[in-house]
Deep mutational scan, measured.
Amino acid sequence: MAAGGDHGSPDSYRSPLASRYASPEMCFVFSDRYKFRTWRQLWLWLAEAEQTLGLPITDEQIQEMKSNLENIDFKMAAEEEKRLRHDVMAHVHTFGHCCPKAAGIIHLGATSCYVGDNTDLIILRNALDLLLPKLARVISRLADFAKERASLPTLGFTHFQPAQLTTVGKRCCLWIQDLCMDLQNLKRVRDDLRFRGVKGTTGTQASFLQLFEGDDHKVEQLDKMVTEKAGFKRAFIITGQTYTRKVDIEVLSVLASLGASVHKICTDIRLLANLKEMEEPFEKQQIGSSAMPYKRNPMRSERCCSLARHLMTLVMDPLQTASVQWFERTLDDSANRRICLAEAFLTADTILNTLQNISEGLVVYPKVIERRIRQELPFMATENIIMAMVKAGGSRQDCHEKIRVLSQQAASVVKQEGGDNDLIERIQVDAYFSPIHSQLDHLLDPSSFTGRASQQVQRFLEEEVYPLLKPYESVMKVKAELCL
């Protein structure tokens, strides 16, 4: 049975990233139509530049190519590739079939990587351009969430054990800070992308030097003109047959890092959902379990974690691919890159769409948070109580021993009897502590235990987050809708 299948058929496997999760716009960027249309555009740009620099290419040939950029006979191309065992030459023939007058000058002087690699770089750039505003929107939604809850005390956790208090907004800023680093890295790697350009079979530009009869300047002009037509500021000066596969490492490393950030955020949300302090959106008709109707599973956060793990592992592909590119190139890269580049971007696209949807509907339960604080705060307040007693004339050592005994009794009630923490009640009825009984409410005010959390939130948002989001103001209103 021949390899390949009808990918629109229910009898043929289709990647869930495309069929179930990723956005239509990201799927289109990695589609065959987008790819092969870009090949034709690159052939047109090459012909236009070659004509401008004096090669015998007519206006009629150029116009014929322009008129057929979208006229792609995919069936013919597939048949040609089956016959020739070469995808680029299959599309040269297919393009030439609908451009008979231009057929002889299509791909003039070029090698397969002229269309293959340059198209990949265009796709990487455009895919990054799709991700950047999506990530900015996630940051914006979380920034709104953090600002609104900047002063809401909550129990902090280290080692997932109760620690000092923080605020809900401050905790959210930990998430935002990681995503801001990801946004900066995505922008950097996007701006650092260079075009492969017009380089020939081993990167020496020998074929173009021959076409222009040894004119170095025209060869350099050709490279520059096509690079500018493709919208790049610069091209690699040095290439082998391909652009260095280190570029793929750079791009997928940034995406993998984004995956790590999203995994951490969504894990926190899942843990908070278990504590009943916070939940992701839950639709009115949504079913959490087929057997347990009360369940409210954090399905979206779980999906993000599941896909983020996949995204983090994909960076190993370009690392290994770059390491086995012998001399000017081997074909070890080809099949692998067809999979890992598309999957990385479709996965990143999915987790950003999902995280935006989550961040637009996060639900906080202040009463649950308050109750958990009441359970733990008495123990945390013991040092403040000791200091207040010393100020009232008591002995630190005597007070410490009193607190120690009462704390152990209260802990026994919590752990052995399943009761509430009654340390404060014990202190309130103990005559030894009568000098500070009137101060206990103040000493137990949760806001006095959150330090500068709310001020940190305000400063972080104003100095770091809002300036970073400013270039994306025009796209901030787009909502994230999930079908599944």
Rank of each mutant, 00 (worst) to 15 (best):
A2W: 06
G8W: 15
S9W: 15
P10C: 14
Y13K: 09
R14P: 12
A18W: 09
R20V: 01
E25P: 05
E25A: 13
M26D: 07
C27G: 12
D32C: 11
F36A: 15
R37P: 01
R37E: 11
L44I: 11
L44Q: 12
L46M: 11
A49E: 01
Q51Y: 06
Q51P: 01
I57A: 04
E60G: 11
Q63D: 15
S67H: 10
E70G: 12
N71Y: 11
K75R: 12
V92Y: 07
G104V: 11
A110Q: 00
A110E: 02
T111L: 01
D120H: 08
L121Y: 01
A127W: 06
K134R: 07
I139C: 08
S140C: 14
E148G: 10
L152R: 06
P153A: 08
A163L: 01
T166K: 05
V168D: 04
C173Y: 00
W175F: 00
Q177T: 13
C180G: 11
N185A: 14
L186H: 11
V189W: 07
F195D: 00
T202R: 02
Q205G: 11
S207W: 03
F208I: 09
L211M: 14
F212V: 09
K218Y: 11
V219K: 03
M225I: 15
F232K: 03
I237D: 05
T239A: 14
T242V: 09
R245W: 02
V247G: 09
C266S: 10
E279N: 01
P281H: 11
F282C: 01
E283K: 13
K284P: 09
Q286G: 03
M292L: 03
P293C: 02
P293W: 02
R296W: 05
P298Q: 02
S306E: 04
L307D: 00
L307C: 14
L314W: 03
L319G: 03
T321I: 10
W326F: 14
W326K: 00
F327A: 13
T330V: 08
L331V: 08
D333S: 06
D333F: 00
F345D: 04
A348E: 06
L352P: 04
L355C: 10
L362N: 00
V363P: 05
K367G: 10
I369D: 07
P378I: 04
M380P: 03
N384W: 04
M387A: 14
A392R: 11
E401V: 04
V405T: 15
L406I: 15
K415E: 08
E425N: 15
V429G: 14
V429M: 15
I436T: 05
I436Y: 04
S438I: 13
Q439A: 14
A453Y: 09
Q455M: 09
V457K: 03
Q458T: 13
F460L: 06
K470R: 12
P471M: 15
E473K: 14
E473V: 12
V475E: 09
M476F: 15
E481R: 15
E481V: 10
C483W: 05
L484N: 15
L484S: 15
